[in-house]
Amino acid sequence: MSIITVENLTKKFGPIAAVDGISFGVEKGSIFGFLGPNGAGKTTTINILCTLLSLTSGKALIDGHDCMKESSEVRKKIGIVFQDNTLDKELTAYENLLFHSYLYNVPKNDRKPRIEDALNFVGLYERSNEPVKRFSGGMKRRLEVARSIVHQPKVLFLDEPTLGLDPQSRTSLWEFISKLPEKHGVTIFMTTHYMEEAEICNKIAIIDKGKIIAQGSPEDLKKMVGGDVIYLKTKDNRKAIKDIKEALNLDAEEQDGEIYLSAARGDACIPTLIQTLADMVISVRLQRPTLNDVFLKLTGKAIRPEAVSGGNEIKEAIRSYRRKFDK
């Protein structure tokens, strides 16, 4: 059963369509990843689903309630971590969550235990009574995640929840987030720029320039970019390439002293390769497509040859963008 249903959703800012006729459904209790480059329309979509923006045309439903017409019903059911920080930095961590629990009408006797639970969950219980302005960026982010679950929402929107976090905090935050669906039956709608983080999603939609260009499970998407890539180091690369062509009818190429070739099932292909080349082989490694490769291919930012790109360039680009962005 879909808990989020979006049909032909379009949002125009003046003449420009930030979101251009997208449709998707999110299953109850699943994790849905919304991926796309900067300016693709991710935050705009979230803002419409959260009833903060109006839609130009199309339909958006959460748990059967129309995001335009039944905004207060929708608001009761959702929790949000916005892309940019929305804490009151003058208040303490506890006070921020207490404010939230009043706004969401959490029953009086549940307020304290739920807030303490949430703070514990993200490891901030000891700092409950410290003003948020003394928190680091990562701690603020964790606090926002804690706040978003205090009222036990059915659907949780996470707009780049790990923005500005170090690798350890990112890992622990995802560990915690990925537990939410089984534990509380929460459905998660998330965006991220870190492709490896999207691996935990049950379903992913890739959006570019306001349009969804692919959707499916991470496995499905990886199949779209073709097979695995095998890298070989041999004693005589030129001869090896010729042998592979003759014996296996596969096209191999050489780059930086290494041979590489694509194959649908790389792991099954390796034994035959080694037999063919016999004692010429020095080393072998196998690279499976990552979501990064999918992203690169679909958003057209790949660097040829496609299979070799490995996503390092875009990773670097995102990283340097983030560095700029975080300041």
């Binding site: 009833t51 903060l52 959702i78 916005f82 920080n85 929305t86 804490l87 930095k89 404010f99 706004l103």
Partner: peptide
């Protein structure tokens, strides 16, 4: 400017 308004506007209050 500091975003806190969104916290209030997204809440189920009139």
């Amino acid at each position: 400017e500091f975003g806190f308004m969104k916290e209030m506007l997204a809440a189920p209050v009139s």
